[in-house]
Design a protein around this nucleic acid. Structure first.
Lengths: 183, 183
DNA sequence: TCCTGCTATGCAACTCGTTGCATAGCAAGA
DNA sequence: TCTTGCTATGCAACGAGTTGCATAGCAGGA
């Protein structure tokens, strides 16, 4: 219900083609909202029909043409309306937590496999944290960024960093707990 | 794709009716997996057809009959198969983060409204943390719980507590940032 | 007495998200 | 030369999740 609005924010920060949006959703925006290129193209079409965004055709030689999308006034006012509506409680899907509780109904071999899986999972989160920290040093070197847009981007990034640190600490707790059960 | 498995774990921990499951999903399981009663009833029907669970009819006077579900051997082996498969990367939907970045494109009045909204949101998370801590004191008073099932439930609960603490700290950061922008 | 809320289950319609596939040309490496 | 991978867009089908509504009896308070 809010993919439209995530796209509006991203396009206001910087106009983009569907393909570029999909890559942003893999990177920075994917930190708090995931979407595939299919969803994005479908929603872009609907948003164009609603007059929320307008396209500029860009011919490129050697590559397929692309359509660069910008936010129209109607899109901007739709965004503002949504911004001022109450925040919906977040919906959570932590598959790993289900598996951890499920491990009580598997045997020692299954729990050993889960330990390996948690270690793999931990490595991906460690890599994500490293990526965030690199991005922070690159994009926010000043202690006090001046404009609102950058300050808000930074505080959201700090949220991502805090989340990853919390996850890593918890996964260590999980590993300790799982290993204790093997004795 | 994994609601079935969350239900299997819950029913292995304790058999339940669809209605009771729905309440568990509002409470403890909802910490890491949300589901409405509609989803649950539909999935239970499919799981019964697949022979994963069996029902025991319980007649109650003064109340509608209920069907108490237990996990059949086929369900248990389906769970074990799933437990040993790789964990899918979690899909995130943080509407609030979208709104925070979107606030750069609203005016001072809109940002003031967002501050109020973040405060309301913060209060719900503070209440959730309090609920978790109360539950922890009630269900895990010992330093070292003996059996695997309880130890695993506890480590998942500690994850929920760590998450809520992280969110509260981040929301304070967000409020400070938003208020700085007003000057 | 009426209204609200709880237990208990379910249908129907709709939207959202996922997966597989298709096109098409260029660049770079094996 | 062949294959892989990247840019760039899209269709079709399916599965998952959401919303509104319906039934039904009991308990408790206004």
């Amino acid at each position: 219900m809010a993919l439209e609005h995530a796209i509006l924010v991203s396009l206001l920060e910087q106009p983009a083609s569907g393909y570029e949006l999909a890559r942003r959703f893999e990177r920075s925006i994917g930190r708090f909202w995931t979407a595939t290129h299919q969803q994005i193209y479908r929603v872009l079409k609907r948003m164009e029909a609603d007059g929320w965004i307008t396209a500029e055709e860009i011919g490129q030689d050697g590559r397929p043409d692309k359509r660069s999308w910008s936010v129209a006034p109607a899109g901007r006012s739709a965004l503002v309306t949504w911004l001022r509506a109450p925040v919906q409680p977040e919906t959570v899907r932590h598959e790993l937590a289900v598996k951890i509780r499920g491990a009580a109904f598997d045997d020692a071999a299954g729990r050993a496999a889960l330990v390996a899986e948690v270690e793999r999972y931990r490595a991906t989160h460690e890599a994500t944290l490293a990526r965030y920290l690199t991005g922070e040093r690159r994009d926010f070197p000043d202690a006090d960024p001046p404009d609102a847009q950058r300050a808000l981007q930074h505080v959201v990034l700090r949220g991502g960093i805090a989340y990853e640190r919390m996850v890593l600490a918890w996964l260590d707790d999980v590993l300790t707990t799982l290993r204790t059960l093997e004795n």
